[in-house]
């Protein structure tokens, strides 16, 4: 007990020494987290292991990236409907900063603030620490059953149907959507969920890849082995993104009707509609911005 009290006092002291802007960020964050409509148990966890208190403790660096590094600007975020929704976005930039920035946008700028749920790759849950933090921040192993349950519970789920195909796309393929998986559409039909197309402008230039040696990556146990201007030249530092300007565009929610067990051909048509919507947002975003960094 005594140590806990001491730790809190120390925390307060350090908090007092922090620069003003950080303290403001923290206050803003607390304010937003308080407004999130989530169902937590008496220990502060939701059924899938999300814990706003942990998010609060650890999100500051990401928040600094959001405000001062990527200087994220959101457009039409009020289009995200209340209750269940699937956010379908483009994926790029070698590391999933786009996921973190969309999640922060929904936390900071949506009304009421929402904690976006992510569908993580299976192998994420095998990584020590990463698996725990991913769960506390709202991600879960991306099985269709879990996603359906989250939607039925009224959660807002973020999916990148491009997967690693998008994340490791080459610079010359920027703003070209790679093949989409169809799983998200079947889930949307099954759980009667509106789909919100989301376009992230900026992420596609944050870490230009010139080649991708997939086989070598697999040999090293990584999903890809990209060659960028700085990686592997600068070692681990080389994976850091450039300070591009982020714009996140939200499209009108799309409602689809049909059977979740339809043939791929029929599902693909619907998926194509979503891709087109994202491409439209790309067009708008690229037209409206002035420069990759100044935006």
């Amino acid at each position: 007990m005594a140590t806990r009290g001491f730790r809190r006092a120390l925390g307060d002291l350090l908090g007092g020494l922090l620069p003003l802007s950080v303290r403001d960020l923290r206050r803003e964050l607390d304010d937003r987290i308080r407004k999130i409509p989530t169902r937590l148990n008496e220990f502060g966890y939701d059924p899938w292991g999300l814990c706003p208190a942990t998010v609060r403790e650890t999100v500051l660096p990401a928040l600094a990236l959001y405000k001062y590094y990527f200087r994220v600007e959101t457009h039409d975020i009020e289009r995200v409907p209340p209750g269940r929704a699937l956010l379908i976005a483009n994926h790029a930039g070698q590391l999933p900063f786009d996921a973190a920035m969309i999640a922060l946008a929904m936390l900071l700028e949506a009304e009421p603030p929402r904690l976006v749920r992510g569908m993580a790759e299976y192998w994420v849950s095998e990584l020590p620490w990463v698996s725990v933090y991913a769960a506390r921040a709202g991600a879960a192993s991306g099985t269709p059953d879990t996603c359906r349950e989250m939607l039925e519970a009224g959660e807002c789920v973020l999916v990148f149907p491009e997967g690693v195909r998008g994340m490791n796309k080459l610079y010359k393929e920027r703003y070209e959507l790679q093949r989409f998986g169809t799983g998200f559409m079947r889930l949307a039909l099954e759980a009667q969920t509106p789909i919100v197309p989301v376009a992230v402008i900026g992420s596609e230039e944050q870490n230009p890849g010139f080649a991708n040696f997939e086989r070598l990556g697999r040999l090293l146990g990584m999903p890809a082995f990209p060659i960028t201007a700085t990686f592997p030249l600068l070692g681990p530092l080389g994976i850091l993104p450039m300070p591009v300007k982020y714009h996140v565009y939200f499209g009108e929610p799309l409602h689809f009707q049909g059977s979740p067990t339809d043939d791929d051909a029929i599902i693909d048509e619907k998926v194509e509609t979503v891709k087109t919507a994202i491409e439209k947002l790309f067009e708008r975003g690229l037209r409206e911005r002035h420069g990759v960094f100044s935006g």
């Binding site: 059924p47 899938w48 299976y122 849950s125 192993s141 099985t143 879990t146």
Partner: peptide, 8 residues
């Protein structure tokens, strides 16, 4: 298992 869905 790592790939267990939640709430089986």
């Amino acid at each position: 298992a790592a790939d267990n869905p939640f709430y089986m």
